[in-house]
Write a protein that binds this DNA or RNA. Structure first.
Lengths: 152, 152
DNA sequence: GACTTGCCTTACGTTAACGTCAACGAATTA
DNA sequence: TAATTCGTTGACGTTAACGTAAGGCAAGTC
């Protein structure tokens, strides 16, 4: 049963949508084990209702960020730092500065990554163009010799 | 001793630069163990001179690609596939087509990754701007309350 | 009342990507 | 000649990020 049913049908007030661990696991196509794992490592901290985990919009958003971070190849520890950037205490000046600094590091790293992706894309497209041409050659004149592939 | 010394000083003909495992390890700041590991998994295949590994320009270039792939968060198995795109047999039409297809997949994946990085960068810059403003506030009027950070 | 479903915790297993250590050989260097 | 300095091959250890299995509670279903 979806967690939402627990809230009864007094749907006059805005009901901030809630999710069970199974809901999120299904929606994002990962295992409940993984979600619990993220919690164990401090990336999520859902409420509890009688032992059961209950996730709100904030948790859901954080989970999305986690998955995006993973797709970008970051380790969970890094992703945790990234998530921490979101809930800095706006009253503590030193923490604000520290967060800003960390944020800039992440930005720099992502920009570097951007460059490397762009470079890799150029190379792949180049290879692709060569291969396409080679294919056209072979299709035009089926039994002929050919030059070697692009180095290396 | 650098492998290069083995080639004597008959430097009239162009000597294609060679490297020992230590050379590459030093240059790219990784361990010799890692380099051997890559070889064990088919990502490198240096020559041998009396049991010792000897790397040429091609091996060096492949190693660079490996490291770049790692920085982009790819697994070694994926990187191996990527490397294989470079030395496709230009005479085998089917292999050409298959390579082209794989290449396009990688391109698509990298483009998706590009989008996600761009998105993350926008968010981080946004957070950064908020934090900077908050810092200016606190610097201007040291003891005042403040709004909360950017959700989530 | 038995069964299924969904969640819980605990604990051990697994894979990737190396690190570390041992024991050895070949080549310089003192 | 002895001691370093690279390099070699095993073999075992380690960390991250989960998977998998065992056993149990609570609620709904047949």
């Amino acid at each position: 049963m979806s967690v939402q049913s627990w809230r009864g049908a007094a749907a006059e007030i805005e009901a901030p949508r809630l999710y069970s661990i199974g809901d999120l696991a299904g929606e994002f196509a990962l295992s409940a084990r993984a979600i619990r794992f993220y919690e164990d490592h401090g990336l999520l901290s859902p409420q509890r209702i009688g032992g059961n985990r209950v996730y709100g919009a904030r948790d859901r958003a954080r989970l999305q960020l986690i998955l995006r971070g993973k797709r970008l190849g970051f380790a969970l520890a890094d992703i945790k730092e990234l998530l921490d950037l979101y809930d800095v205490d706006p009253d503590h000046l030193e923490q604000l500065r520290a967060t800003l600094a960390k944020g800039r590091e992440r930005i720099a790293e992502l920009e570097r990554q951007q460059q490397e992706i762009a470079l890799t894309l150029r190379e792949l497209r180049d290879i692709g163009a060569h291969i396409e041409e080679r294919i056209r050659q072979k299709e035009a004149t089926p039994r002929a010799g050919g030059r070697k592939g692009t180095a290396p």
